[in-house]
């Protein structure tokens, strides 16, 4: 068993940090894990990308080969589109729908969404709305993980444990809001 995830978004969205939730849950399940991300200048409002690989055998490359990702988890729709070449046939895309237009040549957002809808296995989620419903607008990323939970080779309880672990130092209110966001996400893509 191997499972490869491309996580993508825009610098400053803080999206990539949720890859830790999935990585910790995978390690708790006894899988080998490699995770790769980009730092530095490219973090400043540009594209940000993390690769997360898990397997019951040792993982070799920290980078996912093209056409092999089982899941693209995107925090912004144009970024989802950018990494489609990494998706394997039959793989899933779970993407937030809110465009982040910090560039002058951002294409028509409807056209971006239309392109994504053409891809079998693409699930478009209003992660911001889910997070607000859960009571914490900043939990959109965790809501998105919830929406992707059914594809992951991990138990929901393991993901919840990792969420608790990650947010524990921020207090119970933040932990609870994130657990609710995760649950709202799961319900959005049952």
């Amino acid at each position: 068993m191997k499972y490869d995830i491309v996580l993508c978004g825009v610098g400053g969205q803080g999206g990539i940090s949720v890859s830790v939730v999935i990585a910790r849950a995978a390690m708790a399940a006894g899988l080998d894990v490699k995770q790769s991300e980009v730092h530095g200048m490219s973090q400043r409002g540009g594209e940000v990308l993390a690769h997360l690989r898990m397997s019951d055998k040792p993982v070799a490359s920290p980078i996912i080969p093209r056409a092999s990702a089982d899941l693209i988890l995107a925090f912004e729709p144009l970024e989802a589109l950018r990494y489609v070449p990494w998706l394997r046939k039959g793989g899933a895309i779970v993407t937030a729908t809110a465009p982040l237009k910090n560039m002058t040549n951002y294409p028509d957002p409807d056209a971006v969404v239309a392109e994504l809808r053409k891809i079998p296995g693409a699930v478009l989620v209003d992660a911001d709305a889910l997070a607000k419903e859960a009571g914490n607008a900043r939990a959109a990323n965790v809501a998105l993980v919830g929406a992707a939970a059914k594809y992951l080779p991990l138990e929901a309880s393991a993901l919840e444990a990792a969420i608790k672990d990650l947010f524990a130092r921020k207090g119970d209110a933040v932990v609870d809001a994130n657990l609710r966001a995760f649950e709202h996400g799961r319900r959005a893509n049952p």
């Binding site: 825009v10 610098g11 400053g12 200048m41 490219s42 973090q43 400043r44 409002g45 540009g46 594209e47 080969p65 093209r66 056409a67 092999s68 144009l78 970024e79 589109l81 950018r82 489609v84 070449p85 990494w86 998706l87 394997r88 046939k89 793989g91 910090n102 560039m103 040549n105 951002y106 294409p107 056209a111 971006v112 392109e115 994504l116 053409k118 891809i119 079998p120």
Partner: peptide
């Protein structure tokens, strides 16, 4: 040979350069 994936999207995404906060 290259791995076969899903067809490339018809809309090539323009790059998103880094910028000042």
């Amino acid at each position: 040979p290259e791995r076969e994936g899903v067809p490339a999207p018809g809309l090539p995404p323009p790059g998103r350069p880094p910028q000042l906060c």
